[in-house]
Design a protein around this nucleic acid. Structure first.
Lengths: 208, 208
DNA sequence: TCTACCCAACGAACGGCGTTCGTGTCAAGT
DNA sequence: ACTTGACACGAACGCCGTTCGTTGGGTAGA
């Protein structure tokens, strides 16, 4: 349902209610149930529509690790481009929509091209997908909605105040990392996670 | 609020409402706002109480990687032991409760003991924490609540039916991995992810 | 052409939610 | 004994997802 994605983009996830959607379609809430059996099903349709925009690389064994990065980046990109979708992705327990399956198959194909066994590829794909969803969710909430800038700032101050109130030697590391943990470093943290995990996978593949 | 955790354990996350909690305390919903300013604040207190049960290892440079595993396992264990808490952990944008901060500091301390720079430790700790929350959330939903067994089974059939309806060569890998992806392999998938990521971190640390 | 039927679409309502407001109650201070 | 203040509470507000019974228009048959 395109209309739902428009509302999501314009007014945020909280505004995507059956009533609001019905209003956009100039009808009543009850009428929506002729096209969708559930709000969950609506969410699933929205997720699938968004995920369909993520490109799927053609596996090339020589480039497999960069292609895995590209696949994950693509998933994250489309989710972050539609803030709120990542939250929906978490709510859906087992995604069995066409786009989800295509993404899953693509991930497995790339990992196998990298020399992993089927089992290794399964587990690695699971971990990478989990991370993609997690990262997209966090990135979305930083850039949008749920928490506004004032609330975020308040939290930051609260944290600093709380930690200052403790003996400084209790949090020697935490007190130093503030500079690394801003929204600006988000992309860098993603690349770090991908690099590290893929480095681990190469160690594994070398042992096969 | 202990009473809230009892309701969570007995009746699931959906039952943790201000009204239900008030009923358990033999009072009205409005009275709760004398002790808690928000439902969000209640959730934060619940999360902190649960996280407080996760043990914090004393850093030993010789054992750092196994200690990181233990820390993550501990976080996951306490969350899965209280199904629904993992979901709360995702809803809270920036966890600034005492237990959360202690866990964060412990993670940084272990990673630094492993020879990572502060920046590397920050990014790695971020990724590991993200993964712990993600894994705990998934594990909780498999073992509990949100989706019942019948619904899960229906989804499984739906997926198989859908994939069978497509040319088999479109999903050569996905069609084979069913055996690896049951609830029984969950612990194995966790260990795989930890092993892989830590292997990647060691490559990094060696370059310092 | 007229009639009978069917079913998609709908208004209205149900039971729930988080939260707020104004009132009552009761113990401590004078 | 009287005042005062803080705390607890009943009732209500405006939302939510979903369901029920009705309706009205289009089509198939006579």
């Amino acid at each position: 349902m395109k209309a739902a994605l428009v509302i999501l983009a314009d007014e945020g996830l909280d505004a995507v209610t059956m009533r609001r959607l019905a209003q956009a379609l100039e009808t009543g809430p009850a009428s929506l149930y002729a096209h969708v059996s559930n709000k969950d099903e609506l969410a699933e349709l929205m997720l699938d529509a968004v995920l369909a925009e993520a490109p799927i690389p053609e596996p090339d064994p020589a480039l497999w690790d960069e292609q895995v990065r590209e696949l994950v980046r693509g998933q994250i990109r489309v989710m972050v481009a539609h803030p709120g979708i990542a939250r929906i992705a978490w709510d859906i327990a087992v995604p069995v929509t066409p786009s989800s399956l295509r993404q899953g198959e693509a991930m497995l194909a790339l990992l196998r091209a990298g020399g992993l066994t089927l089992k290794q590829a399964t587990y690695a794909g699971d971990a990478l997908s989990l991370y993609a969803k997690a990262y997209a969710y966090e990135a979305s909430s930083w850039t949008w909605g749920d928490i506004d800038a004032a609330e975020t700032a308040r939290r930051g101050e609260q944290m600093v105040a709380y930690m200052r109130s403790l003996p400084a030697e209790a949090f020697p590391n935490l007190l130093q990392i503030g500079e690394f943990f801003s929204a600006e470093t988000a992309a860098e943290r993603l690349e770090f996670a991908l690099d590290t995990y893929l480095a681990g996978l190469k160690v594994l593949a070398a042992g096969n």
